[in-house]
Amino acid sequence: MKGIIIRAFIFLLPILGVAAAYAFLDPFKVIGTYSNYKPEGLALNVPLNQNRVSAGTFLFYNDSIRYNSFIFGSSRSMFYEVKDWQAHLKTDARCFHFDASAETIEGILHKIQFLERQRVEFQHVLLILDVDIFRPYTLLNEHLYMEDPLVVGYSKWLTFQSSHFMAFLDRKFLRAYSDFQYSGIAKPYMAQLNLLDDKPFEYNPVSNELRYTHFEKLDEAGQYYTEERMKKFQPQRDGKQRFSAPVIDSRKKEQLAEIAQILGEHNCDTRIVISPLFNQINMAKEDLMTLGTLFGEKNVYDFSGVNNLTESYTGYYERSHYRPHIARAVLDSVYSVRPY
């Protein structure tokens, strides 16, 4: 047996070499701990698992900051700026944006359970929801969207790490990444294939807040809504009120109830925002009633459907994501009667 094990070891040496290089470079930042997952100013950035960015950042800063207020949601919640939110909260609110790409309600529940295990005192919570958060995502097995073992427990560690390693071995990614590491030059193909990200941003690691100020500046100069970008708004809406089919089934209802229970035990000020999506489809009344029953009707703010926030395409970067000024208007509306 010794013979075959030695042979297997020799055979695996090149693969172990690649694995060692991967661990050393840690391109997806899933092996080491980082104070800043998204340093500004690089020509290109490796797309990261936002679950890891949020959880890693939280764990890095929580001991010194002791966060007590959280925004949860998908990438659509990204444009709720902490400074805008903080203005509506108690003065001792220490805010953190705990978002994830392609977030699900189960993912939000796991994050809240994780925070409770970290003995967080929930003071304010803003849940940015929409129908997609209640739908099953097929993406969740992909490395960028997987739940983080830091949050969901180490039973998922191996799957999480191996998915990232396999993503590293992807021939297109490996080529672009090696090319960029070697040459230091950002080449068009790298961003075109979404292998590396070339969108300039500002990132505040303390609040885990990402801002695409570059897009805002382009808009100010009247250069954002180009013909190319306008294609991302197709198909257009017809301005008629429509309702989505109910998406909160019994399983999702249980998850929501668990969220409500945990936050309720902390006497947390919880506000639920139903996002003003570009498609102008209203959330089903049954779903709103379920949310109202669990969290209190006065805490559920529905901005879906045809309304003044969803009216103009200029409130959106593309069909999926709305811009900071829309998020600001939502916050102003949600906290119009300032309770503090």
């Binding site: 055979f11 090149p14 693969i15 071995l169 992807d170 021939r171």
Partner: peptide, 18 residues
């Protein structure tokens, strides 16, 4: 071993969605 490495590279580079 060359054949095995080739197969492993094909598996890593040309795998379909699981």
């Amino acid at each position: 071993w060359l054949i095995y490495y080739l197969i492993l590279i094909l598996l890593a580079w040309f795998a379909g969605h699981q």
